[in-house]
Structures are given as C-alpha cells and as structure tokens.
Nucleic acid binder design. Structure first.
Lengths: 135, 135
DNA sequence: CTAAATGCAAAGCATTTGCAAATAT
DNA sequence: ATATTTGCAAATGCTTTGCATTTAG
C-alpha cells in the first residue's frame, strides 16, 4: 500500500513533510523523535520539532503508526503492521522485527490469569550475530 | 530478605524515606512516580519529588529496583525479582505479575534471529476477570 | 476558497542539578 | 566526624499549545 492513499484514507493531507516522515519510517523501521528530526533537517531546513510531534501523534491516533517503548531507551515509532516482537542488540542497538508463534504462551497466560487477552508486547534483548562474535 | 540489609548491602544509608519507598513498592507491586509521591505525602509532608527521583534511580542502578515501561502509561517501578511477565487490564488498569515458561519462544527467537538472547520483556493486555464479566 | 498543516515562540510538565542543612553511621 | 542524603529552588529537557502564515485539495 502506498503512503499517499494511506494518508488520504485517514483524512490527512498529503504534505511533503508527512511523505518524508513516512518514507523514513518505512526505510528505517524504528526511529525515535530526535533521529527523525535529524534525518529530516537536510530536506526541510525549517521543519520544526512541533510539526514532527503533531504528525507522529496524529498518525498514531489514526493507528497506522505504533509507538514502541523499549527499556532504557527513547520511544521509537514504526509503521503499524501485523503484531510482531522486537529483538534488540544491547551492543549495537539495532532493533529488528521478529514474527513468532506466541499462541501457546498467550493461552497459558490466559489460563493462569483468567484474563481475556487482546494484544501483547514482547521485547528480547541480547547480542546480534555480529556483536556476539566480537566478544 | 529484609529491606534494611538490602539497602546496606548496596552501600545505601537506611533513611526513613527509603524504607517507606521500598515498603510501598513491596505492598503495591507496581507504582509510578506520582502515585509513589502521593503515597508518601502523609508520612513525609516535606518529602520532595527530587528525593524520590534520586532514590528510585540509585535503586535502579543498584539493580534491586526495575523500571517497567508500559504502552500508553507512565513508567512504573517494582522490586526486582525473578524474570516474569506483566499482564494489564485495559479497563481497570491493574497490573499483575505472571510467571510463564517462555523458553520455547526464546529458543525460537534465537534460532530465527541468530541472536544471543539474555533478557526479555513481555506485556499482555486484556481484560481482567472482573472487567470481562461486566462487558 | 476553506480547512488543515506548518513553523515559530511561548508555555507546560517531568526530571535533574546545585547546594545548604540535616542525618546516618 | 564525615560522607551521604534530604529538600528546596533553579535549571534543564522534552513535549505541547497558540497563533499567524502557508499550503493542499
């Protein structure tokens, strides 16, 4: 699906700033506000942080962006997609998506807690292959 | 293990403020800075937020407190214990600990990613039994 | 042409810092 | 007696708001 219709479907005007924000998110996967700001500076020298905050929040409200809260780190944002887990290298800080079958664990959690579960967040921390081999 | 030796073992002086903070954490399980502040007001009318922040951070640094980052909520703190997951009611906001066997999922994540995993955070969202029955 | 978005400056919160006074050991 | 901790006030930093100007549709 292309960014333009994604914005239009949500009654958001297609501005160059928004297109670039979405493009950066698409290419980077996960990015925090400051890095996003830095990435946008060259293309939009006058762009303000306020614009980024406003856009990130409207897009999160429209549910096509998601906020990811990672321990000891600034929040990062990603384009919403099928529920997935995150895996983070404690050395080089790379963040990857990973699709796991967690149904067993969810079922166990429901049985134990008697909760009716709807969503979950899973973050794994460790060392990526490159950083592992350097130790 | 008692709070006093927990503080002493970490070269922290045993002040009434610290004892009460730890006691509240022990009784509440999970609490955010503001609620902690409110809970302490009656016992310590002059206690300042700065003291809470300083203490929470030194205790987190000493690793006997842990910060839990929950989507759409303020960070909460808990006494460190065996790794466990959290389960949160979207209706009444209660936060519970749950001990699950996640070894299969961790193994699968390691195989798929080739990461060397050390820790993980898992948060489940849903409705608790009480809130489920009200719907 | 109109409603929405941008960008600036100011305001608002949450958190941290500096420092004098109080306290634990 | 000394080093640490507390609590205040000020400072910092991140995020939001208000508003005039610009832009998309």
């Amino acid at each position: 699906m292309n960014y333009i219709s994604m914005l239009q479907n949500n009654n958001l005007k297609v501005t160059p700033q928004r297109l670039e924000i979405v493009d950066i998110l698409y290419k980077n996967g996960h990015i925090n506000i400051d890095d996003l700001y830095k990435s946008l500076q060259s293309k939009f020298p006058t762009l303000s942080l306020a614009t980024i905050y406003k856009n990130i929040h409207t897009m999160c409200d429209k549910l096509f962006l998601s906020e990811v809260k990672i321990p000891n780190r600034k929040n990062v944002y990603e384009l919403s997609k099928k529920e997935h887990s995150h895996i983070i290298c404690l050395e080089c800080n790379i963040i990857l998506d990973i699709n796991l079958d967690i149904s067993r664990v969810v079922n166990e959690a429901e049985e134990m807690s008697k909760f009716n579960l709807s969503t979950s967040q899973i973050i794994f921390n460790g060392l990526c292959p490159k950083c592992s081999s350097k130790e």
